[in-house]
Design a protein around this nucleic acid. Structure first.
Lengths: 193, 193, 193, 193
DNA sequence: TATGAATGAGCCTTCATTCAT
DNA sequence: CATGAATGAAGGCTCATTCAT
């Protein structure tokens, strides 16, 4: 008796998830090019060929890994109370970002490795665009609410600061004083209330 | 014939420089792994084998390329008048950095690609450390002079902002409003003088 | 319950036949090596694994496909009236051959691909031998009846011509003037009656 | 001191020729798909990778092998005295063909394997076309000179016979009575003059 | 018996590196 | 020192076959 379709779907989902997890970790730690399919398979505890049941190619695996990370990100900012005062929104955003950064370290590592390499497959670039736009819009509105003269430039600066902090945190590891830096950043925009 | 030897040395130096320049450009544009020795040799207009007269291996070539960039960086900050007022020093640093960023785009591209990949050969890591320390110390002193309560954290934040701006500039290209962002950044620290 | 068993056998036979048909078509169109088990299974509308219930291996499937074609061929020449005049027998043979060629295009395509590759598994070679011998004997007798001086050589020549025509027809497709060539061939041997 | 360009060209030519020879033999004997690059390299006594200095891919190697065979063929028919009587021209053509068939057995084996498989890369198909046209035209003229009623059909029939004989010779090996069949064929067209 | 996920040997191909000239 | 042909390890990928359900 063959398994039901649902059983098969479950198996597939599980295997696929395992591959995605393993690949994310290895890509993040060693880089895309320095990670071989063999390594991924071995780490995942399966045979090399199995990977190709789920992903057409190594590159497509990378895409899937990255996509998954972006998808999980999507929900993140919906938690922010958009009706709150700008100061609070900024605080919430920072908290959420830092939380994501710490929980999804591998993803963020991969993220910076990818955007830094300018080879981003078109698919990924297209998928990334709206996410970044949303972020930028968020900042823009924030600074408008704060009465900034040039909200756009302010937004750009803040975005850069955000990415810089993430980058430094990922580079230095746990010894990086993420909390302190966060406080200082908040201090700059919200001021010593 | 001492002159002959000098000529040889000169030729050697010239060839080596050409390799370094070519490699930097290709590594920056296509990434280390996606650039083959053949490509570099062809772009440099010499034979593949010749490269190995100057560099032991591809990895060692990368190191040399990166080292050279760092060496050129060393002189950069010596131009700053350390006796000037902190506000002026920050302004000078920003100007110098932006100037370097624009002139040495390839190097900076490679820089971010490398630090992002956490594979930095030990040699490079060691060479990079003092540069970053110097930068950090510079910021630290700056904020002490500015009377900051926690100059260390302030320094970290500013450093992150710096890197973030660089990153975004490199990602977005010339349409990035580097000047405007710079002004905003200066405004935040120097205030509405 | 004997009926159930018969039903099973019927189903089995039907499935097997479907595989054979599909495999013949794909092997003929794309070649043995360029046709994967997956493709066959998908084209046949069943799962890959099922194929192995009916055939031990891909090679054995090929054998079965070819065997089946040869078996169907066996009956073909029995329709010829062996008592007829040699001219008529030749005509009948030609007509039957052309008819088979047109109806079993896939088989003949596979046939030429196989004999051309000199890898013919021993089984097939053994199965093929009597068929070809029968043909040759038929020709031999024919030319004896026609009073040829060297019936053997004549038979060999005619056989070659036969295969050549088939080959060209298969290569050129429907635009090949099969009928005209047939007429010419008949004319050569039967003469302007 | 580097080798001169001519030296390099000589080396390349020699290596390339060795690969072509080896590949032709193996492709002919075992078939394209059943011959691995490893085998070819081993048979040629060189490393696997070396092959790719000369041919972009396995398929391109096949093309080159086939092309070379066709090129050598080109000269063949120029030896025929086109002013001779049709009977003599046919005789000459047959002799030349048989001679080629025996000398270039591997090529002809490959030839039939390829045309039989209907996958002929476009390049090859295009290269083959004029050769076949030339042959057909030759036959056509021949039969016109012989006063045939339908020279086209006659040409088609003769061409088929030619290919059939070749095919049978290649299939049966040296025991095939090539000479006798040739005589018979000549007899049919030239007749008892 | 049917299914399709899993396997792994083997394939084609790339490329850093070596070396004879 | 320069050259580019040669090497061969390693990588990505395919696919016939197996097997648990």
């Amino acid at each position: 008796m063959p398994r039901t379709e649902q059983q098969f779907a479950a198996i597939r989902e599980k295997s696929k998830a395992k591959f995605l997890r393993t690949a994310l970790e290895l890509f993040a730690n060693y880089g895309y090019h320095s990670t071989s399919i063999s390594q991924i398979a071995k780490s995942a505890g399966v045979a090399k060929g199995s990977l190709y049941h789920y992903f057409e190619s190594k590159e497509q695996l990378l895409e899937a890994v990255f996509m998954q990370g972006l998808n999980e990100l999507d929900g993140l900012f919906e938690e922010i109370d958009m009706e709150a005062a700008p100061e609070d929104k900024l605080t919430q955003l920072l908290d959420l970002s830092i939380s994501s950064l710490q929980k999804e370290k591998h993803f963020w590592q991969l993220y910076f490795a990818l955007i830094t390499q300018m080879k981003l497959p078109e698919v990924l670039r297209k998928r990334l665009q709206p996410v970044m736009n949303e972020m930028f819009t968020f900042f823009n509105i924030l600074f408008q609410e704060l009465g900034a003269e040039e909200p756009e430039s302010e937004a750009k600066l803040l975005a850069a600061t955000f990415d810089g902090i993430c980058l430094h945190y990922l580079m230095m590891g746990e010894e990086y004083p993420l909390e302190k830096v966060k406080e200082k950043l908040l201090g700059m925009y919200i001021g010593k209330r």
